[in-house]
Design a binder for these strands. Structure first.
Length: 270
DNA sequence: AAAACTACCTGAGTGC
DNA sequence: TGCACTCAGGTAGTTT
């Protein structure tokens, strides 16, 4: 479910409730996430959360001893609730805070994970990640052009590869390529430098605008208060198969690329 | 080495 | 109502 804007929205929502607070109690209701939640998470009990940040789609909550790394997978969400709130069916993990509030991880499909790391940036899940798309020093046309050299993979799959750039998921990949006027199926190595300039700009633009809108709620994304994001109404091609292209009036097409639904306008994207 | 595919899991929606 | 089927915002691991 969550792509970078949804994870960033979640971070901004939960961070003020976490940073500077003590971890009073950790509850693991179902440890069966993507990998079993380690027993060592309980070692964090009694420690203060010094910082909360995001790397790609990973959330990192740091104490003096270790960091908790949380990924929301396809269906995960975090909420800040009163501890007396009834548990929901898929609330798997929770942190009771010194403030008296509780952070709860809800994840029906259990594709998310909770792991512990002394040095989160060196953790195998994070160590090989590409640049942050909102960092225009590290992420730009030069980077994309160099990384795409000799690659035959479709450019849509290329920008969804977290080793190339983090945070671009299935929705924003289609959206960015539409804005940049690039056909999703084009081999990455055949995309010109000029087109990559448009693409890098488009990715930043669409992710930034979505963060402003609180993310995209297509089916079930909710922020830390349980509210939806409003970027769905700004989507230009995603989930619009058969409808009119907002730029040229042509018809938006749906194809499957890398087993994922992909939307584009055959007339304006070459 | 790179590309393509598989697997993990639940729930919502559709058509019969 | 019920059943069978498809699809869903991610990504590590395996196979080709």
């Amino acid at each position: 479910m969550p792509e970078l804007p949804e994870v960033e929205t979640t971070l901004r929502g939960v961070a003020p409730h976490l940073v500077g607070r003590k971890i009073v109690e950790i509850t693991v209701r179902d440890r069966r996430l993507r990998w079993p939640v380690p027993d060592s998470v309980h070692d964090l009990t009694g420690l203060k959360i010094d910082s909360a940040r995001r790397r790609g789609k990973y959330l990192i909550f740091t104490t003096r001893a270790a960091s908790l790394i949380i990924h929301l997978g396809m269906s995960g969400s975090l909420r800040i609730v009163d501890p007396a709130t009834a548990w929901q069916k898929h609330d798997h993990f929770a942190i009771l805070l010194g403030s008296g509030k509780q952070l709860r991880l809800h994840d029906p499909r259990r594709f998310g994970c909770v792991v512990l790391a002394a040095e989160p940036d060196q953790h195998p899940l994070l160590a090989a990640l590409g640049p942050e798309p909102l960092d225009d020093k590290a992420f730009n046309a030069t980077h994309l052009f160099a990384a795409s050299h000799g690659k035959s993979v479709a450019v849509k799959n290329f920008i969804m590869d977290s080793h190339v750039v983090v945070g671009v998921g299935n929705i924003y990949a289609s959206e960015s390529l539409f804005i940049a006027g690039i056909r999703p199926t084009r081999p990455a190595g055949k995309v010109t430098r000029t087109a990559f300039e448009r693409l890098a700009d488009a990715i930043r633009q669409v992710l930034g605008a979505s963060i402003e809108a609180g993310g995209t709620t297509l089916r079930d994304f909710l922020n830390e208060k349980g509210e939806p994001g409003y970027f769905a109404q700004s989507l230009r091609v995603y989930d619009r198969a058969g409808q009119r292209c907002l730029r040229c009036g042509g018809t938006v097409k749906r194809i499957v690329l890398g087993q994922r639904s992909t939307y584009f306008c055959p007339k304006c994207q070459k």
